[in-house]
Design a protein around this nucleic acid. Structure first.
Lengths: 211, 211
DNA sequence: CTTGACAGACCAACCAGTCGGTCTCAGTGC
DNA sequence: GCACTGAGACCGACTGGTTGGTCTGTCAAG
């Protein structure tokens, strides 16, 4: 791991704990075992560092989501895969995500456009899946697409506020719960009975408690 | 409106736009038409101002939620009322909420405990409703209480990132959609058929599009 | 000898907070 | 009715510490 990465990793941890403005360049520098010179050799400014962190994460997530929808799956399957893959990102990128949602307000104007665009693309992916789901009668037709997308995003994204790696539930379990909740909201009664999607519901899991 | 309130209102707007550290006391002072002296006459420090904003909002929401559950309603009704009342808070207190979730990381240690306690109480209210719902067989028994609470909180709280007062949908409409989504995730098939709860679902609203 | 990676002393700007001062007004004594 | 006093509300020039960023070097590799 070279110096640049070490600086990023250190900053991530520090930013997550104390916020962008709660951390000085001197702290970053000393915790990553380098110097002002080392830092400014790799980054034009503290603001550029913030941008690099943002871009790194959003690019990764966006690529993953696009991969998922370029299949011939049913919308229900797509939704399940998107959610699972996104939730799993928390295990690796939680600090990135925290910084992404917590500190984006401090991104300098010159950087915001690049990030905004990718953010929009990510939302668009979800939009398309839901629209497709409604068209194909798998999802309830009375759902307003925009609000539904924002609800799903909110539910999943909020995890950054409380998810702990060594918590009671594994990331896989949490992802399964989200899938269950979301699909229960989205699917029509008809689709819920479809045997192909049975495995997505908690009540049919082997671990579920049955009376 | 006296000076103290004017300072709070101005700060709220500024903090929401630029973040706590993106706003200087001088800015606050000049935008609220006062002076350094005026500011420090009412607040011990910039940090205290942040605390006052936090406390004001969380106290309000907590009181509202406690009022709601001190009824003899069914859990389903309670859940619906809590969600509706909380979502409606966005219309009045959106800046408070934004600052609450965005800047709490910068609260000084001396203030965090007071806020944390009220935050926990709020979660506890939701916990209780869900537990009661499961006990009374209105909510699905396979739901893990903690994650479900966090999902609901996430879904609703996330609104602060995108809700605009003059947006396409009114706050009432958004609240109704949340209620529909959440109840579809929570309720048992049996309970969904209960005529008393019919009005909570979008498909039974007068405005819903029917083929 | 050149170039890229890194070191660290130094600087200028900024910003939260201070402090002596002014203005207004209610209360008090005569 | 008037002069005096003191307290609370508010003013704004000033300061001292902090912080992002610079600049001159050093050194190892090629």
């Amino acid at each position: 791991m070279d110096l640049k990465d070490r600086i990023i990793e250190t900053s991530l941890t520090l930013f997550e704990q104390h916020g962008f403005h709660g951390v000085t360049v001197n702290q970053i520098v000393s915790e990553s075992g380098t110097s002002k010179g080392g830092f400014y050799h790799h980054f034009q400014s503290k603001d550029e560092l913030l941008f690099v962190i943002h871009d790194y994460f959003i690019s990764y997530v966006l690529t993953k989501a696009k991969e998922t929808i370029e299949t011939n799956d049913h919308p229900t399957e797509k939704m399940q895969k998107i959610i699972k893959s996104f939730v799993k990102v928390f295990d690796i990128y939680k600090p990135h995500i925290s910084v992404f949602y917590q500190e984006s307000i401090y991104l300098k104007p010159q950087y915001v456009d690049a990030i905004k665009e990718k953010r929009q693309s990510y939302k668009a992916v979800l939009f398309d899946v839901i629209r497709e789901g409604i068209e194909k009668r798998e999802f309830r037709s009375e759902l307003p697409v925009e609000i539904t997308v924002m609800s799903i995003l909110g539910m999943v994204n909020w995890s950054y506020k409380w998810y702990k790696k060594d918590g009671e539930k594994t990331i896989e379990e949490i992802a399964d719960i989200y899938v269950d909740l979301i699909l229960h909201s989205l699917l029509t009664e008809q689709t819920k009975k479809d045997a192909r999607f049975k495995e997505y519901f908690l009540e049919n899991h082997l671990t579920a408690s049955k009376k």
